[in-house]
Amino acid sequence: MSSLSKSSAATPEGAHAGMLLWALIVGLSFPAVTLLSDGLPPLLLTAIRFAIAAAAMAVVIRGARDRWPGGRGLALYGVMGLCLAGFFGAMFWAAHQVTALSMATLYVSVPLLAYGLGRLFGVERRNGGLVASLLLGAGGALALAWVGAGGAAGGLDFGLAEGLFFLGCGASALYPVLSKWGLERGWLSDSAALRTFWSLAVGGVLIGLLGLAVEPVQALSRITAADLLLVAYLGVFSSGVTFWLMQRGAAVLTPGTVTAYTYLVPFLSMLILFATDPATIGWQWLPGSAAVVLAIASLLRRPRGRPALTPTP
């Protein structure tokens, strides 16, 4: 069995480094997604991505002795899969009715929601310093989103579509909380690779079923060879590797800390924008960038926090 499937987590320092890599991969994935052909069904495409990622992880976990979860573990993977399906379903449905600024504004709630849900499930401790870091990062990410939207005022109108996307954000925040909760109770494998595989497999099936229910399957006939190669890349790296890094980090970091790295994504998108279009560089990007960097730096300086419990048989 490979070293990837043997280790469930890194040291806190290694977990933070992994989440920095996670943010880099996610940030680079957004430009890659724009290269896909227009008119492809997003939910079915996501299901294909997850299937490719799960197949890649299946190679990694082959030979693992505990690769089949128990009844409680399988049920928990089902709930975690529903979290993924709920988020992606809400995101793709709201994308046609909600402004990009509104979605960015609502999405910055995920780390704070993860902290609150973590407190509810008992996997987060009361931590005023962490909350302050999350609020600082949220403010910085919002500032970057506002500048990226051209400084448009009044970008958030809270209606049915926004409410649905906010519920999707809650589902996204619940995913690492459930992973931590199940790991501490011994319901989930102590291998980050196995947890990643089952999350992707169950989530991919549920997202695929949702896609079959609401999207025209014949739209997949428009997919090209270039699209397939891009989807394969996104599946292995943007889904497989990033989920593994998140599962690896969740074993030693708290859900609020793990999800806080989403604040780095708009910052990295800004750097990519500067590299491709230097004329966009301006002082207006500085406050948000400084807030995000300070928030992540404060997380790196924080102690380990709540450790993962030793799984029981």
Rank of each mutant, 00 (worst) to 15 (best):
G204V: 04
R195P: 12
S238L: 05
W283A: 13
Y107A: 10
D66S: 10
V79N: 01
G78N: 07
F243E: 01
V108M: 05
T310L: 14
L101S: 07
G155E: 06
L299V: 12
R67G: 04
D277I: 07
S172R: 01
Y115M: 10
V217A: 13
R125D: 14
W68F: 13
R301W: 08
A141L: 11
A152D: 13
S133E: 01
G78H: 04
A9M: 09
A141T: 09
V98T: 15
L300C: 11
G39D: 07
L35Y: 12
P12W: 01
A64Q: 14
M57S: 05
V33D: 10
A291P: 01
G122Q: 09
R306E: 09
L264A: 15
I296R: 03
L299W: 02
S199K: 00
S269L: 11
T259N: 15
G282R: 10
P42Q: 02
G137L: 02
A104C: 07
L286R: 05
K6E: 11
G170N: 05
F243Y: 14
I207N: 02
A279C: 06
S179V: 11
L144E: 08
R185D: 09
P278L: 05
M80K: 03
H96E: 15
A100G: 08
R248S: 13
L142M: 14
V110P: 02
V292G: 02
S191R: 03
L167M: 13
A10P: 01
R185H: 09
L117K: 08
T224W: 04
V108P: 03
F88S: 04
G305N: 10
G81Y: 05
P307F: 03
V98K: 00
L271S: 08
L130S: 04
G282V: 04
L294A: 15
A219V: 05
V26P: 01
R65N: 12
Q97T: 14
F87V: 11
S3A: 12
L300G: 12
L229K: 06
L134C: 06
G81K: 07
V265L: 04
V147S: 03
L74F: 14
L82W: 01
E162G: 14
T312C: 06
I25F: 11
M80G: 06
A250C: 09
E162Q: 13
V79L: 15
G118P: 02
